[in-house]
Design a binder for these strands. Structure first.
Lengths: 135, 135
DNA sequence: GTTCTTGCAAAATATTTGCAAGACG
DNA sequence: CGTCTTGCAAATATTTTGCAAGAAC
């Protein structure tokens, strides 16, 4: 599915900003922050527009938000698009890269009585291969 | 160990702000945000001072920072103080409560070649018993 | 007394909101 | 053409920094 098809499927208007975000996110081999997406995009969109687009795409489960820290939020394609299972994320402390570990499924945690769960976020923090080699 | 002893052990000065933060965090049955800690503290400290204290306590592995979302960061005692294992955290979407699930250990994830891990954060999002009952 | 910590003012950052103009279907 | 989206300006909120005064040891 390409960006346009995805938007159509979800009955969202095909705007160049949304298509651009999806194209960039799909091409990247990693999760991207708002500024990283903006840099890679030809069009010069307002940040407000980006944030609203992210919210819309997130609500429709097209992209997924990964919160690493207060000032480090990244976005990647949602499982419903990649057709992968729920997975863990890797965060490199050296280069701030965030990557979906598509092949690492998340264990089903057994909650205490009374708690009901919806989603589980797993972020493994460490050093990525690229940064490790540079030591 | 009480707050004063903890600070002494780490060769940190015993200031009333640090002791106060530790007392509040130790008494709470859940993780607390900066504003929640400030509300529960008698002394009227500057927010700057709080943030600097958090950073210091975190660097010394006395407290642990749990980032739920861009504008929702909470703090709880670190494992080195509670003497518990690494554990998952629960976040209630209804009341914004964050709780350490001390008895739920974190699975050891097998990373792809080249990745080295240091810490793993697990946040399970759902509804807590209290909020569930109120439906 | 030296060093580390605090408070105040001000800045940096990310994100959100209101509203009129503009684009999509 | 009606509805949803964008851009601009301005507001929120959290967190950070510089620096002089104050507290800890």
């Amino acid at each position: 599915m390409n960006p346009a098809e995805i938007l159509n499927t979800h009955k969202l208007k095909r705007t160049s900003c949304r298509e651009g975000i999806l194209k960039v996110v799909m091409a990247a081999g990693q999760a991207l922050a708002e500024n990283e997406i903006r840099e890679r995009l030809a069009g010069n969109y307002d940040r407000t527009t980006f944030y609203r687009s992210f919210k819309t795409l997130e609500m429709h489960h097209i992209i997924h938000k990964i919160v690493v820290d207060h000032q480090l939020v990244k976005y990647a394609l949602h499982n419903s698009i990649t057709r992968k299972q729920d997975h863990a994320h890797f965060y490199c402390k050296d280069c701030d890269m965030v990557k979906c570990l598509d092949d690492i499924p998340i264990q089903k945690y057994q909650l205490p009585d009374g708690f009901s769960d919806k989603e589980t976020e797993v972020i493994i923090k460490g050093t990525c291969p690229t940064c490790k080699d540079q030591r």
